[in-house]
Amino acid sequence: MDKTMELEIFRYRPEQDSEPTFQTYEVPFHTEWVILDAVNYIKDEIDGTLSYRWSCRMGVCGSCGMMVNGVPKLTCAAFLKDYTGKIRIEPLEGFPVERDLIFSMDDFIAKLKSVKPWIIRKEGEDKPLEEGEYLQTPRQLVEYQQYTMCINCMLCYAACPVYAHDNTFLGPAAIALGQRYNMDSRDQGRDQRQEAIASHEGIWQCTFVGECSAVCPKDVDPAGAIQRAKVASTIDYFKELLLPWGKKS
């Protein structure tokens, strides 16, 4: 580790700071390191007071999302070799900052719950365990599989222009997870999720810019999920208008 690099890190400690500042650290590094390795080096060897979240360091727990040079990234999957010069690290945009790089997850947790992200069966149509699994063909699995890959890392919210403008918008991950259940052949609960998913004007404001899908580290494509939700809701609307006795099939 003969070379060093500079990291400029967002600092905010609510008990002592009236506003955020940036602190620059000089860090010796290995070329194969990820950003998180450099941040851990600071924590361990230079400044124990720096606070941030991390755990699995293999891109699946979803804890370590941060803005890296203004772009939302999982820092355990962002490699130093892809950057030159001083690197600027900030908490993910669009959320209240609790301290340093830690932001509040409260809003997302409430929104996730509001889309009822669990299998809903019609009254009396639960299959008893003794009768085994629900059959689901590989083709039926593929229908919703992509949306199951969401790790709740919040990168898509940090990238979403609609959420930045109006944080009452349900947002990309929550809509994708609602759609994940809507499209699961075992589920019968789409009607119960519609109010949460389709009622807010946010879904209609989403212009399919696709920022959310561009930053998603797991290729979930929330923008695609939102488009599908829009189409389904439009079909509902016309069915109700034209076939009031038929309702949703």
């Binding site: 979240r53 699946v60 727990c61 979803g62 947790i109 709740n152």
Partner: peptide
Amino acid sequence: VYPMRSHTVA
């Protein structure tokens, strides 16, 4: 941690 960060995830 938030439950979905737990190491079962890995």
